[in-house]
Amino acid sequence: MSYLNSNIRLAIVDDHQIVIEGLKTLLTNHSEIEVVDCFISGAEFMAFLTGHEVDVVLLDVMLPDGSGIDWCKEIKIKAPNVSVLALSNHAERSFVMKMLQNGASGYLLKNVSVDDLVHAIKAAYKGEIAFSREVNEIIAKPTLNELKGPPQLTKREKQILSMIAEGKTTANMAETLFLSPLTVETHRRNLLQKFEVKNVAELIKEALQQRLL
Rank of each mutant, 00 (worst) to 15 (best):
T154E: 11
Y107P: 04
L63S: 06
A207N: 01
A130M: 01
L147Q: 03
S132P: 05
G22T: 00
C72F: 07
A86C: 07
N102P: 06
T183S: 14
K148W: 06
E21K: 14
S2Q: 14
G66K: 04
L191R: 03
E202F: 09
N190M: 12
I75C: 00
P151N: 05
N81Y: 09
K141S: 09
S105V: 01
A91Y: 10
S67T: 04
K98P: 03
L85E: 02
Q101W: 07
I77C: 08
K198I: 11
P150G: 01
I138C: 00
R188Q: 12
L23E: 06
I69D: 01
N5M: 15
E196H: 08
I138H: 01
I204N: 02
A165Q: 06
A43I: 13
M62E: 13
K24P: 10
K141I: 14
N172I: 00
N136C: 15
G167V: 01
G106H: 01
V197C: 10
G149V: 02
L4F: 13
D60T: 00
V35M: 11
T143N: 02
A123K: 10
M99S: 04
S6F: 11
F178V: 13
S180F: 07
L4S: 11
E202P: 09
N5C: 13
L58R: 05
V36R: 13
Q159V: 10
T50F: 11
G149L: 09
T183F: 12
M99Y: 05
I77K: 13
P64D: 01
A124G: 00
D115E: 15
N190Q: 12
C38Y: 08
A104S: 04
Y125D: 14
L109S: 04
E92F: 08
M1F: 12
V19E: 07
G103D: 01
A130Q: 00
K110V: 03
S162E: 14
L203V: 06
V35F: 11
L212P: 07
V197M: 08
S31G: 09
Y125K: 15
N190I: 07
S88M: 00
R133W: 12
K148Q: 09
